[in-house]
Each structure stands twice: as C-alpha cells, then as structure tokens.
Design a protein around this nucleic acid. Structure first.
Length: 875
DNA sequence: ATTTACACGC
DNA sequence: GACGTACGTGTAAATC
C-alpha cells in the first residue's frame, strides 16, 4: 500500500473552526466550538483520507525568523480571543487521545514545518495531503501533494492541485509565492507592491514568470504608472516574496516514520468528549471496554419470592411507573441492587410481601433512590411507609447542575458518565403508544436502573462534595422531598359545588359577552382564536395594529388595552378573555383534577426543574391561582379545609427578595430601610427621586415598585420600559439612578457579574449553583441575559433556599409541638396550612417565628399571616 | 403530536 | 444550533 501522510495546520484550522461556529459551550461554561470544529474536521480526514502517517503542526511563540526580515510581520493582528486560547489545550489533548503526532518549533510557523515535511515525504514517495484554512499553503501543491483549504464552514474544503491552481489563477503553485510578493497579504501584514492587486499580479506573472525576472525587465511592463510603482518598490516586492515563501528546510529532530498513525485510545477520547459535552459524538463512539463490561454485567435475578437475604442494610432501590402522574400511576415493578445482587421484583410480589414491607419501613435499612418523592408516594398508596432514604440521584443531579437535569433516568445517568441505560421512551414508547413491553424486557430495564443508582450515588456524592453542596443536599433538598411528599399526598380540599356554581355563572356571562362581541363585529367568529380575532379587529373593523407576532397581528392584553379607546368591542374582548381563562383553566381545569370521591386536589411539586431553586407545580398548577383581580380571586373560595373544624392559614414573607438583596449586597441604605421596617417602595422612591418619604406621590411609588420588581426578577431596561410604559432609554436612566442611590447594590451587581465570568457560575446563600455560560458570549443580548441572570439568581435562589428551610423547620415544629395542623402548599414566598381551630393561636405564634428564624440575615425577615374558612378569606 | 398565542401567579 | 428579553404552567387553536 502506498504511504500517505496528512499534515494539518493546527492553528489555522482551530481559528477557522472558532469563527465558523457559534460560540458553543459545555455545561460548565467552557467554550468548545473550536475543539468541536477541529474534531469534526479530524474525523472527516481520518475517514476520507485514511492516512498511514499524520501530523498536526502548531505555531510556536510570537516571533519567527520572518520577524527578523520584517519586524511588522503579522503586525496589527488582533490578539487571540481568550475564548479560543482556552480551547487549545483541549485540541492538544484530543490529538494525544487520538495518538496523533503534534509538533511546534521555536522561531518557525506551522507552515514551515509542513513545507519541510511535505518535501521530505515527497522524496520518500508518500502521497501528501495538507489541511489548512490559509491559502498560503497552496504554494506547496505538486504532483504528489494536494492542499485542502477549508471554505465557509469547517468540513467544506477546496482542493488545490497544480491543475486546480492553473485553472483558478493560471499560475503554477510556485508562482503563488510571487503573486503574494507582488500583491502582499493584509492578514499577515505583508506589504507587497502598492497598487498591485490580484489581477495585476497574475497578469505580470503570466508575462514574466517570477518576481525576479519581472524586476529585471521592468521596462517591458505595459503602463507607465505600474512601471514606476514597480521601480520604486522593488525591494518591497523582494522582501514580500521572501516573507511569503514557506521554508522547506527547517531543522527537525525526527523522522517521517515516527509520524505513523495507528489508532485512537478510545477510553481517552471518550473521557474527553464527555468533558467537552460532545454528546452527539459520544453516541457514535464505541463504548470503552470498561463501560461495555458494566452493561454486560447487569445480570439480574427475577425475584418472585422475597426472602430476607435479598435485602441489605444499604441498597439501591428503583420504583418504576410508566405514566407521569404518580398519584394515579400503577407501579410497574421494582429494581433492587446491593451486596446480595441485582433483582427485579414484580410489583405485586412486593406489595404482598411482609418481608418487603418490613424492609421498606425500616429506618435503619438505607435506600438510595431516584426521585424520593415519587417513590414514597408510590409505596404509600399501597400502604407502605418508606423510611431510611439516604440518597436521591435526581435531586443530586439537579443540585449539581440545574440546567441539565432531565427527568428521564437514562439522560441523568448519561450526564454523569453512564451510557448504559436505555431511555424510558425506547423501552415504553411515548404518547398514546406508551405501554409495558414483555416482562423480561422491562424487568431488565428496571433492574439496570437500580444497578445504576448504586454507581451514580458514588459519582454524585463526590461531585456534591467538590461543590460543597453536601449540606444543601442532606439538610435541605432531601428532607424537603419528604415534606413535599406529605403535602402532595395530603392534597387540598376543594368545594366542587362552589366551583360548579361559579362555572354556571361564568358560562352565562360569557355567552352574553360573546353575543355582544359578535354583534359589534357584525359576524360570528371564534373569539378564542387570535388569528380570527386579528382579522376582525384589524381588517374588518380597521383598528390600527400595534404589534405583530411571527404569524400575524398580536392581540395580547397590552395591545388591546391600547386599542380600547378606539372601539367599544375591545373592552368586551378583554373581559371575555379574562373570564374565559377563569372558566377553562381554573373552573374546568380544577374540576378535572379533583378526586371524584374525596374532592381533593393532589398537585405535584417539581423539585428539580427551575434554574433558580424555586419549586414548580403541575397537574394542577396551584402556584398560579388568581389573586390580583377580584373575579379571579373568588376561585380561592373553592379551596377549603378538609373538615369543618379547621381553617386555611396563610403566612407569607414580606419582600423576601429585597431583604435578601440588602443582605448579600450589604447595602447600608437598603439595610437601614428594612431595619426601620419602612414601606420599601416608598423608601426606594424617596431615595431615587431625592425627596422625603412624605413627598413620595403614588406615581413615584408605582415607578419605584416597578424598579424593585425589575431588580428582583432581573428584568432588562426593555422589560422595565414595558412595565412602566416608558422608553427604553428612560428605563435605563431609572436603573442608573436606582444604582446610584444604592451603591452597595451597584457594587454587588458588578462583583457578581465578574464572579460569574471568572467561575462560570453563581451561588446562593445555601450553595445552590447556577452555571451561566452565556455571560461570556459576544452576542450582546445573550451576554446581557447572562449578566441579569448572574445578578438575579443569588437573590431569587437564596429566597427559595430560605423558604425551603422554613418548610423543614415548620414541619419539625409541627411534629415537636404535636400539632394536627398540616402544611398544604408553597407558593414561592408563602406557606398555606390547614389548621384546626383549636391550634390557631399556637400557629399564629409559631409559624411566623419559624419562618422569620429560618436563616439569620443582616436584616430581619418579616412574615404576615391570616386565616379564614377558605383560601380566599386568608388574605 | 407539536407549535403558537395568550394569561395566570411570584 | 441559536439563543430577544425574569421564571414557570395550562389552555385553545392552528398546524403538522
């Protein structure tokens, strides 16, 4: 077989990749686009060229022998962006992993290394391929050597053979050097002859062959001006040619044979791709032997008979359900893995086994699970109280990186380096087709998950420790999961009759409004269809469109409010929308999910979803029950205690986020305001507008409130301008004035952004973490988003930490005080309890105390509370 | 089955 | 593979 060597210009290809691809980054915020592009190209080269020998050459240092000739060589070049510099070590690692030689040499450029080696290789009867992003290299093309230059993308290349060069320029490869000598090269700061560009250079070389011959017969050049220029700049032409000439005799201390390419170290490649987050490439990779072996090793036993020996003191335990809502879903089976082996346990075998129940309820038998809350509830519904939960892979994964915490077990396992688990979708199907396959198939799947839990625990524990998040995990999130399980199982009683009544009322109101709207429009149409509504308003009735969406006219509430004065129909539409929302989402929605027998609603709190550490609530979402408008607020009348002897008791933190801000920013004025328990929006208005508290009018307070809102939620000047109905510029001025009034806050905002840029993440009071890769983006919007995220997450996230801590403390208090009161719901800054009338006085005293003492800040936490016969009355 | 527009809460 | 506006969830309509 003929020997074939591929020579790659490492710097040039890395640069090309960096600028050709968007600034991708891995989950830890490291940029990866250049490495990715480089890898793509490398893979393509390996596959298509199938070389016997391979070398990647790099530029060494800043100065080369060319700088002696011309000290301005490569002058005026932009510094390598740090986003690219940080990637070079990974490119080097990649080459090592692939077993590819790399070389750099003091005083020389990669070009010269390649030029020298290609010459040697040609003499040694190699076929030579050169890869670069720099057209200079085309001068090396010959019968034996082909030069491949990357085009637009990174894997798209243009192949330069002598024939192609002849066709393209009408020159030989050697004449490329002469061409450069004449026309120069702005990117390398090679001057060339002023006034000579590509066209003239080619014309001259066709006539005179080389720079030297040209200069010897300047008199024969047509055109007086051109003659003069050449005469005047002879030395520039000679020097430029010299600079452009790739050296082919670089002293090198190795032989071609040492560049032999064998094969990659799969294990290393795998590790590297994993670190870089190249998931698509990982999948194509053969699994390293070690992990493949693990997959083989997941041998499990089918445990139909549950003997005590199966259960260890410390086990991994997986409860499987194939539909999402664990309040209704059937248990499909269990996986158990520990010292005594890995088992699949059929659901009914477990539920009928006293041994299983005894083990599950034994606090001293430790269990590591995936989604503790779901596991607890799944067992509780069958009369088993799971105790001794020691670890939860899902929660751990969420704490390690909330942005990458999918629900699917396989995806989480993969994140932490285990590729061996099949996705639930692959095993069970999705949507309407979701069902249990053959028992043998799902048994293996479930058993493999239990076995994986075992291994993932070790990995996650180590990472939690590195992040100093063990306390957050063990003292906050894991205990909270159990409290949430209790809240969800308990459920909230709804007055179904009351909901139905309200539904009837709404129904007739809506019918009336619908008629009015149709009459005013002069035609019947579906008011709920933004498309049809847009046609009616903006075409039939000729109202001026304010805003457009991708698909047509916007008919959102803020648009309609602007249009209200123009046509009577608009206010009716707004009312229709408002009532329609109440009807469909809240009345019908809640009736759909209320238990037909108990009339209780069991929401699910997602504890591993939000980027800030807040909870979310689904099926139904009980964190967005209307309160702002009276009609909607009435929905809360349907939320009632589960017995006549109790009340609904609500306690909420007053301005918790701004108090957190005062604390972490250590802002003197803000702290002072809270120490004096001032109305914070009035105080802000006074500070921002430089007036006394008494002089703050309602408009000033409204604006200050919007700014505070913006601070808490990290909105942009654009967002503030929208909420205040002012220009973006004015909103920006507002924010500046705010920051001038609170220098501590300003200082905090600046330092947290700096910190996020340095570390790639921000943390909260209790060490919750959020990675913000966007913050180093060159895209303004993206970077701004990252900056606001950096400023906002510690505020909102710490507030989330605090209320979670309060929930744990409150649960402990209820237990200790032996109270029958129950925590029902959490709505970000408030806790809703059901309280027996006899315990009201105690709860009035203890709940605010517990919540206010959850953590100690530089400012007091303040809790307001109220109670009544329905949630509506607890206001 | 998936996407879009809208509206509710904090 | 881009990323346009705090974060979520749910509904209906429209589109595939």
């Amino acid at each position: 077989m003929k020997k074939k060597i591929v020579l790659i210009d490492g710097n040039s290809v890395a640069y090309r990749a960096f600028f050709a691809l968007p600034l991708l980054s891995n989950s830890k915020g490291m940029h990866t686009n250049a490495v990715y592009g480089f890898t793509m190209m490398l893979l393509k080269v390996l596959k298509e060229e199938n070389p016997t020998h391979l070398l990647v050459a790099f530029d060494a240092g800043k100065t080369t022998f060319r700088h002696k000739t011309y000290d301005e060589y490569k002058g005026g070049r932009q510094k390598t962006p740090p986003e690219l510099s940080e990637q070079f070590p990974y490119i080097r690692e990649l080459l090592k992993a692939y077993g590819i030689a790399q070389y750099e040499l003091e005083n020389y450029e990669a070009d010269d290394i390649i030029g020298t080696l290609s010459l040697q290789a040609e003499k040694d009867d190699f076929e030579v391929k050169i890869y670069s992003g720099d057209k200079d290299l085309t001068q090396l093309a010959s019968e034996a050597t082909t030069v491949c230059i990357t085009r637009k993308g990174i894997t798209d290349i243009e192949v330069y053979t002598p024939a192609h060069i002849e066709e393209k320029y009408g020159l030989t490869p050697e004449q490329i050097i002469d061409m450069k000598g004449l026309m120069g090269d702005s990117s390398d700061n090679i001057p060339g002859v002023p006034g000579v560009g590509e066209k003239t250079a080619i014309k001259l070389l066709k006539q005179f062959d080389t720079v030297e011959k040209l200069l010897a017969s300047i008199g024969e050049v047509s055109g007086k001006k051109l003659q003069e220029k050449l005469e005047e700049h002879q030395d520039l032409a000679v020097m430029s040619k010299e600079l452009a000439t790739i050296l082919r005799e670089v002293p090198m201390d190795f032989s071609l044979s040492s560049l032999q390419y064998n094969e990659p170290d799969n294990e290393k490649v795998y590790e590297l791709f994993k670190e870089l987050g190249f998931n698509s490439l990982l999948e194509k990779l053969d699994r390293p032997a070690e992990e493949a072996a693990i997959r083989e090793k997941v041998s499990y036993e089918f445990a139909a008979e549950l003997k005590e020996e199966l259960f260890n003191d410390d086990s991994s335990f997986y409860l499987e359900m194939i539909t999402e809502n664990y309040h209704h879903a059937d248990v499909a089976g269990f996986g158990l893995s520990g010292q005594s082996g890995t088992y699949f346990i059929p659901a009914e075998a477990a539920f009928q086994s006293a041994v299983f129940k005894a083990w599950a309820e034994d606090e001293t038998k430790k269990k590591s699970v995936y989604d503790a809350k779901r596991t607890v509830i799944g067992l509780r519904r069958r009369g088993i109280e799971l105790k001794g939960i020691d670890f939860d892979i899902w929660l751990a994964s969420y704490l390690l990186n909330p942005s990458e915490s999918p629900e699917d077990f396989a995806a989480v396992a993969k994140l932490h380096g285990m590729q061996t688990i099949q996705s639930d979708e692959a095993v069970y199907g999705k949507g309407a087709k979701r069902k249990l396959p053959e028992e043998a198939e799902y048994a293996e799947h479930i058993a493999s998950k239990a076995a994986a839990v075992e291994e993932l625990k070790t990995i996650c524990l180590k990472e939690l420790e590195e992040n100093q998040q063990l306390e957050l995990f063990y003292e906050l999130e894991l205990p909270l999961a159990l409290i949430l399980a209790d809240m969800e199982s308990e459920g909230v009683q709804v007055d179904v009759e009351r909901l139905k009544e309200m539904g009837e009322e709404l129904k007739s109101k809506l019918a009336g409004i619908e008629q009015t709207i149709h009459a005013l429009a002069g035609t019947e149409f579906n008011i709920n269809s933004p498309k049809q509504l847009g046609t009616i308003l903006f075409e039939k009735l000729g109202l001026p469109p304010v805003k457009k969406t991708k698909t047509g006219y916007s008919t959102s509430a803020d648009v309609l409010e602007k249009l209200a004065p123009s046509h009577e129909i608009v206010e009716h539409i707004l009312t229709y929308r408002q009532l329609g929302k109440l009807q469909s989402t809240y009345i019908e929605g809640l009736l759909k999910v209320a238990d037909p027998i108990t009339h209780k609603i069991h929401t699910r709190f997602n504890q591993a979803l939000t980027q800030t550490g807040r909870l979310s609530s689904t099926e139904p979402n009980l964190q967005n029950i209307p309160i702002r408008l009276e009609e909607g607020r009435k929905i809360r009348q349907a939320f009632v205690p589960s017995n006549n002897d109790s009340v609904i008791f609500a306690a909420d933190y007053s301005q918790i986020e701004l108090r957190v801000l005062a604390h972490i920013a250590d802002d003197e004025k803000l702290i002072e305001a809270f120490l004096h328990d001032l109305d914070i929006h009035t105080a802000t208005a006074a500070d921002v507008f430089h007036v006394s508290q008494e002089e703050v009018d309602s408009n000033m307070r409204r604006q200050a409130k919007a700014v505070n809102f913006g601070i808490v939620y990290g909105i942009s000047d654009y967002g503030l301008s929208q909420s205040l109905g002012i220009t973006r510029k004015d909103a920006g001025i507002f924010i500046d004035r705010y920051l001038q009034s609170y220098p501590g806050v300003k200082e905090y905002m600046e330092s947290i952004v700096r910190q996020a840029k340095e570390k790639g993440f921000v943390t909260t009071l209790l060490q919750r973490r959020r990675y913000i890769p966007e913050i180093t983006s060159r895209n303004f919007n993206l970077r701004s988003f990252g900056e606001r995220t950096a400023m906002n997450t510690p505020i909102q996230g710490s507030a989330a930490d605090i209320i979670k801590k309060a929930m744990i403390d409150a649960a402990e208090m209820l237990e200790k005080e032996n109270l029958a009161s129950k925590l029902l719901l959490q709505v970000h800054d408030e806790l809703i309890f059901e309280v027996p009338k006899a315990e009201i006085e105690t709860m009035k005293r203890l709940v605010p105390e517990v919540m206010e003492q959850a953590v100690e800040l530089k400012v007091p936490l303040k809790v307001d509370y109220s109670y009544g016969p329905t949630w509506y009355d607890a206001k």
